[in-house]
Nucleic acid binder design. Sequence first.
DNA 1: CAAAAAATTGATCGTCGTTCAATATTATTG
DNA 2: CAATAATATTGAACGACGATCAATTTTTTG
Lengths: 204, 204
Amino acid sequence: MSIREASNARRRMAIIDAAHAIISQKGLQALNIRDIGKACGCAPGTIYTHFEDLDTLILYVNSRTLNQLAQVLETIDEAGQGGSVPDRLCNMADAYLGFAVANRSAWQALFEHQMERPIPQWHRDDHFRLFGSIARLLLLHKPGLDAAQAQLVARGLYSSVHGIVSLGIAPRLLRLSDQEIRQQMHLVINGILSRLVVEDQKDP
Amino acid sequence: MSIREASNARRRMAIIDAAHAIISQKGLQALNIRDIGKACGCAPGTIYTHFEDLDTLILYVNSRTLNQLAQVLETIDEAGQGGSVPDRLCNMADAYLGFAVANRSAWQALFEHQMERPIPQWHRDDHFRLFGSIARLLLLHKPGLDAAQAQLVARGLYSSVHGIVSLGIAPRLLRLSDQEIRQQMHLVINGILSRLVVEDQKDP
DNA sequence: CAAAAAATTGATCGTCGTTCAATATTATTG
DNA sequence: CAATAATATTGAACGACGATCAATTTTTTG
């Protein structure tokens, strides 16, 4: 890597760092080009030589947040490998809630951000990575499950937990206690898992 | 009502109509004061004599959308009064999906919109109205249920369905077919309902 | 070391939400 | 029915925004 490439990579990282810090501290709404420039020591125009536009930069910040989240969830899951699948899924859901609360602004930015252009595939994959862990657990719980079906149920499970956390901690509606949110999540998780068993008993 | 009051009410309604139309057609992001003024035939400044700011105006648009949604759900529910509670809840969920797809931009604006100031109570109540219908059905399905518990489960159910629809039709992740989304929703609804029964059998 | 290539700058553009003095409209009073 | 007060409307103006680009500085190449 040439000196120029290294310098560019450093600058690029500094811009993402600055944007990530601003989003984490003040939220996506407060993010603007001039403040990013001040925070990382460059002129506004410089940012546009490293990122197509502000939306693209946000994509990279969100990708970083998403990978942090995925790592937290996977670590939690590996730690509880001995336990039952329902317990492990509940632990993952609790960890999801914990991450959302602890990194509220950055987590919110994941879903708050919208761009007109189609989202690039590499960022979609960052999201799908989360489903994978869940699908693996579902297959562990019920080995006979069709792979595509497991993926769909995993996404449904993730979406449900996301909805519960999203509306649970939103100030739009009254914010629920973490305990109430966990109760909702566990009810959904155990409900879906028991249904998977019930449908299995009906079918073959 | 004086001529002036009537004129103000008409103007106020025209502004909300215009804003609602723009949000429905082009989305919340495309909404701006000048276009609203053009659409309802007044100057930008006039809008600020009828609404504190753009955020407040959006609140009124969202309130209208929310009431449309509540009416659709309540109508659907009344139509299926003969059926079982699980079926009625599934029908309501299907109607929720239908509304979100048919009124995508307006529906999205409900959750996309964020303001720094606290949301006024009257708008919170517009949201809580939706939980009420669900809680009533839960109590119908399981009369012994505690009222507060029913409200919490209702909110969890609503949140889950919302999450499934939200991430299901979002272009962020690959958009699922309506059929796949319904499958996810029905799994969650039946799962939660069966869990309610199970927990009941354990406890008393 | 000079020429080419690339990166950086900051003034500048058009657009946005919002404000406000000036103007026009409606209501009240003598 | 004036005349005056109260209110509503206007559109130019302000500061902040994302984005652009000619001018400048820095780095690489021959």
